[in-house]
Amino acid sequence: MPDTANSDTNLPYALRAYSREDLVGALRKMFLIRKFEEGAEDSYTRGLIHGTMHLSIGQEASAVGSCMSLTDADKITSTHRGHGHCVAKNADLGRMFAEFFGKETGYCRGRGGSMHIADVEKGNLGANGIVGGGLPIAVGAALTAKRLGTGAVTICFFGDGANNEGAFHEALNMASVWKLPVVFVCENNKYGMSTSIERSTSVKNIADRAVAYSMPGVTVDGNDFSAVTEAVDAAVARARAGEGPSLVENLTYRWRGHSKSDRNRYRTKEEIAEWMERDPIRRMADLLVSHDILSEAEVGALEAETEQEIRDAIAFANQSPAPLIEDATRFVYTEEMA
């Protein structure tokens, strides 16, 4: 939870709102996401993973910054590019890799894979293979919180592509009409697969669409941890206070292609290089170093530590058992049928 005790308004929001421990924890999670994605890519190259994957390298500040003020009782719904959201919501890395490797110890016992990792104990209702699929589900989770008076807030992550799905409009409208405790966080990485936002979307900023649903909408630099945190924390506080939903648009960029099939024919090397210059992790590290929260040496040590965690998680996944073939039809129904 943000702590607003430090009232020096010249400091970036995150440094005012969060303790040293929280901030170092956030940088650590950002490293974990980056290393997780690199580990996943490497495992794919080695043939340890089949299928496809959607990597979020470059979007780490959006995932971690958005979840800063959440507790385990709060919910998130995630997307096909969801590994970062899992880590931000405190998922176990070994079980994440195990799911990726299709193992019985994975979050979904190997039945879901990359696009369906969920961790309901921690409030992560799951990634989704359908663009926009999580939007109404998040509104439903917020309806439960309001009806049962749990005080929980739901963050609904979605991409720029989803903002042109009907589900987006239906979900935002209902959340507003019923004044539900949900925060819509759009991770605008400029491309829905290959189609740019300019070619697909009639408004300049996706946050402009909030007006149509009578909710606050704000566009922030999604690679600036503090800016993301400031915007989403305010939206979460508003939701928690019973004032209804908000839309936050985090402008960011995925360094890798959409998925493994991407031959990168729709964007230039220069554009990618330009965005790599705005590396959210480097910027977060610089923020902490420049305010004497960490030294460069400590940042390096933190990064090395996360690399070891990823190696351990991959080893756990590798050593885990595969599901039994005869169990392929289990878990369709709660009370299993013959």
Binding site: L135, P136, E170, M174
Partner: peptide
């Protein structure tokens, strides 16, 4: 609900998933 069958059904799914 509004005339939003997809959204309404999805809200019901999310509500069922979380305790209603």
């Amino acid at each position: 609900t509004p005339i939003s069958e997809l959204g309404g059904a999805g809200v019901a799914v999310g509500a069922a998933l979380t305790g209603l």
